[in-house]
Write a protein that binds this DNA or RNA. Structure first.
Lengths: 340, 340
DNA sequence: TTGAAAGCGGTACCAA
DNA sequence: TTGGTACCGCTTTCAA
């Protein structure tokens, strides 16, 4: 039903090839012909069928993004940054959410593969690299964001998670807190890196964390607030309880914060809280939340630029790592007033 | 470079047609042949090229979603609901963000049109219906979500915005507030509807709002918090200032809340605040925020189901409106303790 | 049960 | 400068 090149060609008495060339600004078309074609194109609101074009050129002008949770502000910001870059080059973004489920993610990846995307950007919730081998087989360029894999040499855009952990923990120490706990994330690069940074910061100041000081809050999904709350409740029962807590991410920190306030304790006088991600409403929370900014929008933008360059590159290029520097954002939740 | 049917056919000494039929579970293929084909398909990790398939079937198995702002939790939730429904039927979701810019939106819509999507879901930031006429021309089924247009008969999924305004305002009145202001949104169906509901609720109780009680905060984007704050600052200078404020949406309410607290006033003792949207962290804000739940995830799900049914339908069907019932969620920001 | 031929809407190449 | 022809990877139709 939509208009085709053939229709325009017939109307004008020229060939389909001529129309095609005009639309792609080929130089070797007479000016008069060109004008006639353009006029008719406008009259009919003609839109070239990108599906057909993709079939012959092998380029779909589409990039895929796979995230664990679309509503998590962190991934939403990444998506925004990515899409803003891609749009400028005529690319569209196809988004799949894995809901933090590795199997679902694998399934979505193979569905996207069938669409012959020009590139894929993945914040993975998986534990194995099988999906990535599949992508490599198809020669689709892909970029990991946020989370990376030990055994996988791949393009990557993210922060230095160990530094994240160090910054957060170091900040608590500098603010005078000593019994510092860490509500840790899942055993992926982000969770492990932040945990390592936490340990390193403590070690550097000769502080130790009792084993109960590192409860786990499984990551990033809808329920991370609930999990943060539960983890904090466990911490409050430890003797002595911590006086400062570094949380894996902001949603977890929000949950932990609520648990503390519900227990009748004060933030930051009794317990300080710092999160990670610096999400949009962090400054408006019950106690404005200190956090480590991961520059998520920039992360998306850099991933977008990298994707475009990979698509443009002829052969396979050496995988590139872009590591952004995290930044401390101190707010009231760690601001102990002269106490300590 | 990826495996094609032709490769499998050649390897097995059968025709491409046979392979194609096996993959689509056609009944008229011998069992032995079928098994051989499936085996080879597995061995090679064959993925049918959906681009090619789309060209001949006219079905892309892709739905487009256009939103003003991906990071706005409201639209993120809609996207999530939509994608969860589509995934189950093998559809993918292509997302475009208009950044609240009508021109950008029009441009994105026409780009999506070129991709021959099976359906589109749009939360529009436009003022005119030109884009929708274009979509209709191409016979692509489309659904408006959240915002609708006066002069446009189209499929729609959203809430009853007038009821939203009435619920919010009525709740403030019932809680004992009398000088009720409304920080209004843009002049689109949502903003106008909520404003009308606000007026109607006041009228019903014989209350009137001075003209200065209805400042505008332009909607939904990154800056709505800043705009909410600015609008609230204006309200604080009115004499007498309002004692209750119904805000167009939650981000605006967060801004207003911050302005009130910064001015040294208390919520809800001096001024009550109610928003709309019931976003994820509303309960964890400086003062837990009362809001009107718009059931955004459900909105996305219903839009998804409607999209699938439109795609399945043969001819054009009569446009359908799905109106969800908004629900009051009362929290501390409107809970005046025995006062009034 | 199987497959040859045509064609979906474009683009690439080369000859006119 | 213009256009004929082949073909991208798959499905559809119809004959064998």
């Amino acid at each position: 039903m939509p208009v085709r090149m053939k229709d325009i060609a017939r109307d004008l008495g020229v060939s389909v090839v001529t129309v095609s060339k005009v639309l792609r600004n080929h130089s070797d078309i007479g000016d008069e012909t060109r004008q006639r074609v353009l006029k008719r194109v406008r009259e009919l609101n003609y839109q070239p069928n990108l599906t057909a074009r993709a079939l012959v050129t092998g380029r779909t002008y589409t990039v895929g993004l796979v995230v664990p949770d679309l509503v998590h502000p962190f991934f939403a910001e990444v998506a925004k940054g990515l899409s803003s870059i891609l749009r400028k080059s005529g690319y569209s973004l196809i988004i799949a959410s894995s809901e933090e489920d590795p199997d679902l993610e694998a399934q979505e990846i193979s569905r996207l593969l069938a669409r012959r995307l020009d590139a894929m950007v993945i914040a993975s919730a998986q534990w194995t690299v099988a999906s990535f081998r599949l992508i490599e087989e198809q020669k689709t360029p892909y970029i990991l964001v946020d989370r990376r894999f030990a055994g996988l040499v791949a393009n990557f855009v993210g922060v230095d998670d160990e530094l994240v952990g160090e910054l957060a923990t170091g900040h608590l120490i500098a603010a005078g807190y000593r019994r510092i706990a860490h509500i840790r994330g899942p055993e992926v690069s982000t969770g492990l890196g932040r945990l390592a940074g936490y340990r390193r910061a403590l070690a550097r100041r000769d502080l130790r964390a009792p084993v109960h000081y590192v409860p786990e809050a499984v990551a990033g999904d809808d329920e991370s607030e609930a999990r943060g709350r539960a983890a904090m409740q466990r911490l409050l029962r430890v003797d002595p309880p911590p006086d400062g807590v570094f949380c894996y991410n902001d949603p977890t920190a929000v949950g932990a914060m609520n648990a503390i306030l519900e227990a009748g304790l004060r933030i930051p006088e009794d317990i300080a809280i710092i999160g990670c991600g610096n999400v949009r409403y962090g400054a408006s929370l019950r106690v404005p939340l200190s956090s480590i900014d991961q520059r998520c929008t920039v992360m998306g933008e850099r991933a977008g630029k990298l994707a475009l360059s990979l698509i443009g590159a002829k052969g396979s290029t050496r995988p590139k790592s872009i590591i952004l520097q995290p930044k401390l954002v101190a707010r009231a939740s760690t601001r102990r007033n002269a106490a300590a």
